[in-house]
Amino acid sequence: MRRRKKPSKNIWIKLVWLLAVLLAALFYQVSPQDILSGNFGKNRHIVQTSAQLEPSKIREEGKIRVCIWNVHCYLDTYRMKNGRRIKSPKPEDEKEEILKIIKDINPDVLGIEEIGGEPYAKEFAKRLSQSGMNYPYFAVSEESSEYPQCAIFSKIPFQKTNILAVKNFDYFGESARSPRGMLVADFKTCGKDWRFGSIHLKSKFGAKARDRENNLFRQKEAELIAKDMSRFLRKGGLAIIGGDFNEEPKDGAIAILKKAGLEPLKQENSNGLPFSYHWAKENAYRQFDFFMISKPMKKYAEKAEVLPIVKSASDHAAVFTDLDFSKN
């Protein structure tokens, strides 16, 4: 009688390793491929969904509206009130104004900048729902509620979400880190895989003399984003990222992202101007908020629209564009 071979030790090791990968993927809410490639970090994204909410009907098959907006300090922070500087939440009238504007735009995917961490994202999602706008899927860049974060709210389900550019980098001989990185969400529409990113690069304010307006810091952030996006872009990925770059399309950090394969999407307001931010200190208007897209995405996105700046809501304007994935 032929004796049956016992499974080799290597097979058992492989089976145990596969089980560990699947369990880790479930725990960290990422794909097994991300676990194997090490493409997940300690500062794990937060994803919240609600069983009580159903995704809103997409406007037309394959057509998706995406919007970005820096809503200006949607968290507890120091504000001037009755001549005194006190720590307080964003005023209720400003929050209501934001909701009205978002309702008018009616985006399917919404990238928000300058919101607090998980508690504020939950509150914002609840307010959207109470205003008749259901965004059952959302993620924030970090849990911290003490520092402005990026968030993505969506009517359509994520394939996955992730935070890019969170590694430390050398900054004048010291170790520094992007306070937000870039939050990305992957989607599938009409059989096409595409990526949306909410970004907020380092502000020009608070810069020290060695780095005028934090230009070098933003370039370091852009280098990490370009590196983390490089594989996706090299494979011809459909990408659209946007938010508050704190730079205009001609500046240094944007040049790094252009070299990586992203380019600014043309935008204009009703007057044909691209400006999205009013810099009160210099009484100047700047194009700090815009979208950048990969070359293959150009087929599905034509141009973006900048809404008027409503100062009772934010010193930044909301910017949106329509993607049409029904095109072959």
Rank of each mutant, 00 (worst) to 15 (best):
Q52A: 15
M133N: 12
P148L: 10
M297L: 09
K57Q: 04
H278K: 12
M229Y: 07
Y277M: 03
K90C: 07
I309H: 02
S31T: 15
Y120E: 14
P119S: 13
I11F: 12
E97C: 12
E94H: 13
I58D: 02
F158M: 03
M229A: 10
E248G: 14
G181L: 04
R85N: 11
V140R: 11
M229E: 04
K298V: 01
M292W: 04
R286V: 04
K155M: 05
I64R: 11
L22T: 02
S178Y: 09
K14S: 13
E114L: 13
W279P: 00
K126R: 13
E123M: 12
K6Q: 05
A284C: 03
A313N: 02
F172R: 02
P296H: 05
R3Y: 09
P89L: 05
K14Y: 14
F320Q: 02
V140H: 09
A176E: 14
W279G: 01
R2A: 07
L36N: 00
K9P: 01
P296M: 11
I46Q: 13
E123P: 03
S144G: 09
P136R: 07
L36Q: 00
R212N: 10
N269T: 08
G62A: 00
G173I: 04
L224C: 05
V109L: 06
H316E: 03
R212F: 12
K250M: 10
E61A: 11
V184R: 02
K311Y: 13
K250T: 13
F172E: 05
C73N: 15
A226K: 07
P119H: 09
D93M: 06
S276T: 15
F245Y: 15
L110P: 01
K188W: 06
D93L: 08
S312A: 13
F124Y: 08
L183V: 06
G242T: 04
S314T: 06
S178A: 15
A24D: 05
V21T: 05
P107I: 00
A125C: 09
W17K: 10
K220H: 12
C190G: 02
L216C: 04
G181W: 08
G132N: 14
W279R: 11
K5Q: 07
D228F: 10
Y300K: 04
